[in-house]
């Protein structure tokens, strides 16, 4: 890799004297794209390292290649495609969307929904949510239930709960 005059000028403009950047980036955008890409592409030969972290010769080659592709004006996606065409989906740390990899995204989403549903069901109806005196309120309802002539002892608790909810609704109508 050569160090062009352009690179020295670029570096000097940032206040650096004598040390050149290893690569002559045309712009700061190009620099950040370069670092982003070498961090998300996997080195094909290494033990699970990205191109940035690996000292393997193939990683060095691919970094050089990536840099020249950027220089030639390839877009990020074109560079990813270039690498995948040669080394397979293996080199992408974020696998492309296919009918298999869909599971990677859908399963966590599904689990989140299911657990939300479970919590919703376990916490019961959001009754009394806005009522800070709910406890007090509910006990009043129970008294009401007993007064209505129902034998709570013989009832299943959840049936009682349902009944309370019903009474609560009528009670609100009364208000």
């Amino acid at each position: 890799m050569g160090f062009s005059l352009n690179a020295n000028a670029q570096v000097a403009a940032q206040g650096v004297s004598k040390s050149d950047e290893l690569r002559a980036f045309g712009s700061t955008t190009m620099r950040s794209r370069y670092y982003a890409l070498i961090n998300e592409l996997r080195c094909p030969k290494c033990q699970n390292q990205n191109l940035s972290d690996s000292d393997a010769p193939i990683a060095e080659d691919l970094r050089n290649e990536l840099f020249s592709l950027l220089d030639e004006g390839y877009s990020d996606q074109e560079i990813r495609d270039f690498m995948t065409a040669r080394y397979g989906t293996f080199v992408l740390y974020q696998p492309p969307l296919t009918r298999f990899t869909l599971a990677l995204w859908l399963v966590p989403l599904g689990l989140l929904l299911i657990s939300g549903l479970i919590i919703w069901r376990m916490t019961g109806k959001p009754r009394g949510l806005t009522d800070p005196n709910f406890e007090h309120h509910a006990s009043l309802q129970k008294v009401g239930a007993v007064n209505a002539g129902i034998e709570p002892i013989s009832m299943k608790v959840d049936a009682l709960d349902r009944h309370i909810a019903e009474l609560e609704r009528t009670h609100e109508h009364d208000k």
């Binding site: 094909p44 030969k45 193939i58 691919l62 290649e65 040669r86 397979g88």
Partner: peptide, 12 residues
Amino acid sequence: KGSLGLDLGVYG
């Protein structure tokens, strides 16, 4: 330069 190597996906 390893250019055909790159196109073939050679990694060693």
